[in-house]
Nucleic acid binder design. Structure first.
Lengths: 153, 153
DNA sequence: CACAATTAATTTGTATACGATTAAATTTTA
DNA sequence: TAAAATTTAATCGTATACAAATTAATTGTG
């Protein structure tokens, strides 16, 4: 029992979460390569497969990504022909983003990816449920504490 | 019930894990700024606080980080005066890394960080244990599957 | 209405990440 | 033992991430 125990790698909770995130994403990579997407681009596409049209601000809020990350990413998706980027008519500050036909079609090609990843993660339904709820609990707790320090944007 | 349900954001397991990792790291950032470290640099320092001396290869294996990530990072830590980098006498291919006095001393200054993060994560001991074990289970499953496809390095 | 404050996206700068390639040292093998 | 294969770091190219600063548009206010 050492006063520095709390600084040992095996006692960290964030470290394995960080590894887990990276390693799962690494498993996505070859699958996503086939449809010419990176993991973050895939998340963005999933968002638009559900809402069809939105703006950068709402997208960023949902994905918890800054506009400085999303702006170049969206330009790449536009270049690939999956989305359109246009300024809003009613408020020129807003960027309206919507899927192209090709972007909509991409969903069919992605349909098998979740189950393939699920096989690799290989948890029971009950474990998945537990993990999911605990991860969300942490996420909410960590985000909630934002209000203590600086103001939420 | 939609055939595309599996592609909905709310049904993803990796997405909240990825968010969780990023958001916790975001909470680390102001604390680590005080001792002039980034999160990844902090992980590396934790490794060396335990082993005192090692080489790039073993470090990378433990942290699951590539030499292409670690080489520039270690150069920064060297520049900050926390570590020394030297080629091994017995095998010039190996890079031997050890803490400087200043690197060793940094541990005292980091001692309060884990509990501060713990407060923000704010889970019961039992929840932490469950989450930890499930995350590790996923991590092992995902890594294990490496052997199916391409050879493990 | 004019000007200050706010909002939203972009740009800039720094720091990971990682696959692929390269370069140097060591080990294996013909 | 000399050439081939392997091992290990480092380098290169691409893609996030994010804080801070900038720019442009809109809103609030005296």
């Amino acid at each position: 029992m050492d006063k520095y125990d709390s600084l040992k790698l095996k006692n960290q909770l964030c470290f394995p979460i960080y590894l887990c995130s990276k390693e799962i994403i690494r498993k996505y990579t070859p699958l996503l390569n086939e449809i010419n997407l990176t993991y973050t681009q895939y998340i963005v596409m999933m968002y638009f497969w559900e809402v069809e049209e939105s703006n950068l601000k709402d997208l960023g809020k949902t994905l918890m990504l800054d506009s400085s990350t999303l702006t170049p990413l969206l330009k790449k998706l536009e270049l690939k022909g999956y989305i359109e980027r246009n300024r809003s008519f009613t408020d020129e500050r807003n960027l309206v983003i919507k899927l192209t036909k090709e972007g909509i079609n991409l969903r069919c090609k992605a349909i098998d990816i979740p189950s393939k990843i699920g096989k690799r993660i290989n948890l029971s339904d009950s474990d998945i449920k537990t993990l999911y709820s605990l991860i969300y609990k942490v996420l909410l707790n960590v985000k909630e504490n934002d209000y203590e320090g600086k103001r939420d944007k």
